[in-house]
Amino acid sequence: MPVIYPGQTIGIIGNDQRAYMLALKAKEMGYRVAAIVTPQIQNTAFTSLIDCQIDGELNDYQKLSQLGEVSQVLTYTNELLDEALLEQLAQQYYLPQGSNVLSVTQDRYLEKVFLNDLNINIPPFATIVDVDDIYQAIESIGYPCILKPIQKGYGKQYQRFIQQPSDLEKDAASLKLGTYILESWIPDAQELSVMVVKCKTGQIVTLPVIENEFDDHRLKMSLVPARINQDVATEINRLAHLIGDKLDYIGVFGVEFFLTPDMNIYVKRIIPTPHATGDVLSHTLNFSQYEYHLKVICQLAVGPARLNSAGMMLGVQERQRSLIQTQMKIKPDWYFNLHTVTADQQIGLVTATGQTIQPLIANFEAADLY
């Protein structure tokens, strides 16, 4: 495929914050943006960026084909799209990310097999089909552990945290979604991630390691550089390169990790698109993850990553709106990005940068934001 230059059209398949951020960067770089607009994102900040709007659903092949017809390159930000539809789409239109990666990342078992085949450390797990499997797996995995549907995409309400034998009595009857994975809980783990850039030529660039904090499955905070030693950073970069070499994918993807207090590293999961944890890099790195992704899929030159400053990012919820508005009036050096991606939920980011992490944490704490 030829190089895709500014002025040409990028078709974005997604209706989430990542789609909005990618469209924002594409417009900033001079590209036109086309997208399928679902009912949930009508009249939002995302639709205001779109040059060519196709109304419909993301898993409607007719709409996907219309998007392909008006775009020079297609990209997706939704990791739960129908793999078969994207495979069909890739046969007719330029979709650098491909669809094969989704068969690995959408299925927890296949993802673990992929990582196991690379001799990568993952939390102990077992496949669960019936109640007896849970009791047998507990004998080897032990407590605590987590029961999850094998297919990703189901909400947190379908996951069960099993802390003691009495929990089995109420959870064993909840196997309503077919096959599950029972996974060992990694206690007191530091959560880390790294965004990986993979080019069509095979070139791989790893971005700086990010430290994350989650609250009830929602990203609460990301900071960079992660508070880890150089040996851990080196090993995470090695694992990221190893995964990137074997993953059938072009573009930016993420890998999440657990780091235990005794310095054991476990891979948590692979994210086959740019990811929210990488947003802290937007104001700290020479190029954001979105610009890297656009450069790769448009076949522009990609260089090494350079961290210009430390950074801390918080996800903003609707209940924090008044607090954030106050900070907007008194924090001239903070970066605020508030936007409505879906009609019923306000999503935003606030990022602070500096020479070191600790003063940034202290400033957020003083503002009652963290």
Rank of each mutant, 00 (worst) to 15 (best):
N337H: 15
L259T: 11
N78V: 03
I134M: 14
Q159L: 03
I361G: 00
G11S: 09
L314T: 06
Y290H: 11
Q97S: 11
V37M: 07
S99W: 14
Y154C: 06
N15E: 11
T179Q: 15
G153P: 10
C199F: 03
A366T: 12
E28W: 01
N119R: 11
T75V: 15
I54E: 06
Y93N: 04
N100P: 00
A45V: 00
C145E: 09
A90M: 10
T326P: 00
I243N: 01
R227M: 12
S140R: 13
T9W: 02
Q62A: 13
F125Y: 15
R306N: 11
A366S: 15
L168Y: 12
K220F: 14
R306S: 08
S282L: 03
R238I: 05
V280Q: 02
D171I: 15
S193P: 09
V255C: 13
C52L: 10
V255P: 07
P359H: 13
M313V: 02
D344P: 01
Q92T: 12
G56C: 07
V33A: 02
G30V: 03
H241P: 00
L58D: 05
S174Y: 09
E183H: 11
I134W: 08
L247K: 01
I12Q: 07
G98E: 11
E28G: 03
I134K: 07
Y154L: 14
L175C: 13
F214N: 13
L294I: 15
D344V: 09
L294F: 08
L175E: 12
G202C: 07
L86N: 05
M29R: 13
H339E: 12
Q190I: 15
G98C: 09
I54D: 08
Q72I: 00
Y292H: 07
L80Q: 13
Y335T: 02
G68T: 05
N308G: 08
L223P: 00
F364S: 01
T340Y: 15
P272Y: 08
Y93T: 05
T127C: 14
V252L: 10
K25Q: 12
I41K: 01
T356D: 14
T351V: 15
L323V: 02
S322A: 13
V101H: 14
L219V: 01
L49E: 06
Q159F: 02
F336G: 10
W185T: 10
Y335V: 06
Y370S: 13
Y61H: 08
T38Y: 04
I297F: 05
N363W: 00
Q97E: 07
G56E: 07
A367Q: 13
I13D: 04
V316A: 02
I265T: 11
D167H: 13
L74C: 10
Q190N: 12
T201H: 06
L102R: 09
L22E: 04
D117P: 01
Q327S: 11
A23M: 05
I204G: 04
T9K: 08
Y93P: 09
A301W: 01
D51I: 04
G178K: 11
S103D: 07
I210G: 04
T206C: 14
D51N: 14
F336K: 04
D368N: 15
G303Y: 07
V3C: 03
I297Q: 00
A233W: 01
I270K: 00
N43G: 01
I12P: 05
K329L: 14
K156H: 06
A240D: 02
M1G: 08
Q325V: 00
M195D: 12
L64Y: 06
Q163I: 07
I54H: 06
D188K: 14
L239P: 03
L64K: 02
L58W: 04
E57C: 04
L182C: 13
H217I: 01
